[in-house]
């Protein structure tokens, strides 16, 4: 048997560097929640099926429950805590979720928002059908789907118009 001691890893999360020692099997989700106290990222199924644990790694949305913390070393991780600006100004997607009342219990919401930010950035929020398809990896047990689609649509329009004013 090979020895399975804890390994030292460095993670870059929301622009800050963290050093921790973890068992190799520790997922990025458990590292965030249990080792770093960043509990905004939720654990739903822990099996890649619900999307509650969605975070960004190097700007891409991924599932933290199926990513080993060690695999994320050297990559830039963004969790829901890192989305708003330093002064507390909400990201357009966060604001749209509030305005459209896109949740009930809120458990799936951090994952929905992280997924939606990426969905818009990828250019996959062009129509309601496209939003439904590309947000399908985020389940909502409360069934807030119509409001979630409305929030993503609103945020996508805002992002597009802010890009126009910027250019």
């Amino acid at each position: 048997m090979t020895s399975k001691t804890r390994i030292p890893i460095q993670l870059q999360i929301n622009g800050r560097r963290h050093e921790l020692e973890v068992e190799p099997r520790v997922t990025l989700l458990d590292a965030l929640r249990d080792h770093l106290g960043l509990t905004g990222t939720k654990k739903g199924c822990d099996q890649g099926q619900c999307g509650a644990c969605t975070v960004h790694v190097d700007g891409q949305r991924v599932l933290a429950c199926l990513t080993l913390a060690a695999q994320a070393e050297g990559r830039a991780v963004t969790s829901i805590e890192g989305l708003a600006e330093g002064d507390g100004t909400l990201h357009a997607v966060q604001a749209a979720f509030l305005e459209q009342d896109a949740f009930q219990c809120g458990y799936c919401t951090p994952g929905q928002i992280m997924s939606a930010v990426a969905c818009i950035r990828e250019g996959h929020a062009g129509s309601d059908d496209e939003i439904r398809e590309y947000m399908a990896g985020n389940l909502c047990r409360c069934g807030a789907y119509p409001h979630i689609v409305a929030a993503v649509r609103q945020a996508a329009l805002e992002v597009a118009s802010s890009m126009e004013t910027a250019s």
Binding site: G48, G51, T54, Q60, R61, V62, L63, L66, T67, S115, A118, C119, E122, H124, Y134, M135, A136, G137, N138
Partner: peptide, 9 residues
């Protein structure tokens, strides 16, 4: 196949 998150991984 799968979901956007899974396809990114």
């Amino acid at each position: 196949a799968a979901s956007a998150q899974l396809r990114n991984m």
